[in-house]
Design a protein around this nucleic acid. Sequence first.
DNA 1: CATTGTCCCTGGAAGC
DNA 2: TGCTTCCAGGGACAAT
Length: 269
Amino acid sequence: MPELPEVETIKQQLAACIVGKQFSDLAISDGKPLRRISSGNFRKRLIGQEIKEVGRSGKYLLVRLANGSTLIIHLRMTGALLLNPKNTERFTRVTFKFTDGGELVFTDVRRFGAMYLVKDEKDVVGKLGLEPLSDEFTPGILAKLLAKRKAPIKAVLLDQTVIAGIGNMYADEALFSARVHPMRKAGDLLPFETKNLHKAIRDVLTKAIGKKGASISTYKCPSGELGTAHFDFRVAHRGGEKCPKCKTVIQRVKTRNRSSYYCPKCQKD
DNA sequence: CATTGTCCCTGGAAGC
DNA sequence: TGCTTCCAGGGACAAT
C-alpha cells in the first residue's frame, strides 16, 4: 500500500526518468481514476505537454508540467505506476505515452486510485498537514498537534490534515518503536513519549525509503523492482506472530474499520 | 472544529 | 471442488 516511503520512491525514480519528456498520447481504458475532469479534456490538456518536475506532497505524486498545471496522482490502495513494463499489465487503467516512444502505465486492481489535472495544486493538496521528514516537524510541534486531542493516537497519525503521508503500516511500526499503544488518547501522551514517537516516525519512514518501500500487496517501483521495507516490519501485518522483543503474540484491534497491530506487553495502554 | 461511521472496490486467502 | 466470508485500507462525505 503506497504510503510516504513508497510514493517518495516512485517520485525519485520518475524524476530521474520522465523529466523533459513530452506526452504524445493517452490510452484510457477506465475513466474512473480521473476526478473533476472528463477523459476528453484530460487527454486534450495533457497531450503535447512537457514534464518539468516531479514532486510529492504526503501520499500525492505531483507531475508538474511546462504550462504551469500539475498532474496529481494518488495511488490509494493498489495503484502502481510502471515505466515501460515488459509484460502487459492485467489491471491497466491509463497508459501515458511519450514522444520518445516510452510509456508510463497506471495499474490499479481495486480502482480507488485518483488523478487530477489542476492549475493550482492547493485545490487537491491544500489541506494536508506537515511533512514528517521536513525540518518544521519537531518534537515540540508534534506535542502541539497532539495536545487536547481525545481520539486514539493511531487515528490522529492517520489524519492527513495533521501529518501528511503516514498510513496504517508505518503508523503501527512507529507506535511500536515508541512503545505507545495505538488506542491511547493522543492528548494523554507524556512528553517523553511524544519525543520518542517523533523520532520513531522519522526513523521508520527514512529507513523504508532506503529500502524502496514495502511491497505488501501490489506495490512495485516504476522500475518493476519490489521494495523490501516490509521484511523489517515488527508488528504491521503480523497478527498472530510473536513480538521480536518479548515474544508475546501480536494483537489486532480495529478502529474506524482499520486494523492496528501491536504488542500488548511492549505497548501498554 | 473534533470525531466517528459508512462507502467505495476487487482479488486472494481462509473456512466450511 | 465450490461456495461464502473475511480481509486489505485511503480518503470523501455524512452524521453526531
